[in-house]
Design a protein around this nucleic acid. Structure first.
Lengths: 223, 223
DNA sequence: CACCATTTGGAGTTGGCAACTCCACTTATG
DNA sequence: CATAAGTGGAGTTGCCAACTCCAAATGGTG
């Protein structure tokens, strides 16, 4: 139940060649099954899909959580890179569009990723760590576009995170029927984010960073 | 497991006075507990909260589903009235704002309602029926605002439903920390819905009505 | 006010599901 | 070819919520 064991070749001993092959097959099967059906699937299904026994998967990874951690380290990493990449674009507004678009495209491609990023259950260290890179990058993208007078100045970083969340919800909800409609809602939101005459005043104050972390289920960063 | 029994005073026989009192107490307790903690709570908790035994609740309602049905008939009804009321407002744009605001305020006040309306599990007849009134009313509100040149003309009814859904997700997500931030996301979305020069083109086609019903988990209306 | 059908409460029972283990058997490897 | 490493899948375990049983209590009626 505790996901503390990060587990590469466990302990330090090398695996026998066939065992290593089974490890890779399990990993690949997990990638596919998690992406399609989410983290809810049981290891039995993954093992079957990989063509190995359940016990094999358990010996190679210890438990389900360890498998998830190992798999999604790379996915979460890719997600944070989207934010940093968005900052690299020349036009500040393109940065905002790119940030949301790239991040959401990744979410659209992987149900497991959506569940990891927005897991209700408390403080995955994996996510907390990724946030420490993602959030500042997103903040910079936002600030730059606001300074250029392109992004509504009353927008807080925490608002952007909720925007990201709600579009992920649309993705999740519509996925079985259409893999692209969410781009329409994104278009609407982006039009609502852009500066223009007659922008409506925000009716309430934004979430503070600490509140946002609470919403995200992450233990507040103490620094 | 089937929720077909709608159950008022079950069968036809009148209840003894104390039984009727317990019925009301259970109903009230369910209202409160469902609103706060969602439909996931077990009847044992509701019964305890009502100060009656579990068996009592089961005899009076048959099963959990029947209790839910009875309770949420009124709530879903209120929701559809919001749409019809929005159509009554003088200004077409106020109609759109009112539709979303009123409906979302109701969602914000009741977690159980959110879960009923967006239940993943298939075709609650209750919801399907409510949709048959809600959707046309919403459609009229949208059409009127579009004809007045106030609402973006490329918006489909199905888009509005997804907008409604995604804001409900924000409500659900932020509820424990703030009961009002969702109004900021609503503001952003409304600004994105309003006509203005330089509105971004929609990148993909909207969901058809049938697709939307599939998304909502309702059996397509055959009419 | 006495009688009895109705109702009650809460300690069970049932069922289902997913995580994880056991162990007789197989297979790489030195 | 000896043997430590690895395997598979039929269990076991634990959990949780839905729902039932029945001895005791209680409202309403003649």
């Amino acid at each position: 139940m505790d996901g503390t064991d990060s587990s590469a070749p466990r302990g330090a001993r090398r695996l026998r060649r066939d065992a290593e092959a089974n490890r890779q097959r399990t990993l690949q099967a997990a990638r596919e099954v998690f992406a399609e059906r989410g983290l809810g699937v049981n290891l039995d299904d993954i093992a079957r899909h990989a063509g190995v026994g359940v016990a094999t998967s358990y010996r190679l990874f210890g438990n389900k959580q360890a498998l998830i951690n190992e798999l999604f380290e790379e996915r979460v990493e890719a997600l944070t890179m989207a934010a940093e990449q968005a900052l690299a674009s020349d036009d500040p507004w393109d940065g905002v569009v790119g940030l949301l678009t790239m991040a959401l495209e990744q979410m659209a491609a992987d149900r497991g990723l959506r569940e990891v990023v927005f897991s209700e259950v408390g403080g995955r260290p994996l996510v907390a760590q990724a946030r420490r890179r993602f959030v500042p990058a997103a903040e910079a993208v936002i600030r730059r576009a606001q300074d250029a007078g392109l992004l509504r100045p009353d927008l807080a970083t925490t608002d952007m995170q909720l925007v990201f969340y709600m579009l992920s919800c649309v993705i999740q909800h519509t996925q079985p029927v259409s893999s692209t409609v969410w781009r329409r809602q994104l278009t609407i939101v982006l039009d609502g984010l852009r500066v223009r005459p007659g922008l409506t005043d925000m009716p309430v104050v934004a979430l503070t960073a600490a509140e946002e972390e609470q919403v995200a289920g992450v233990t507040p960063s103490s620094s």
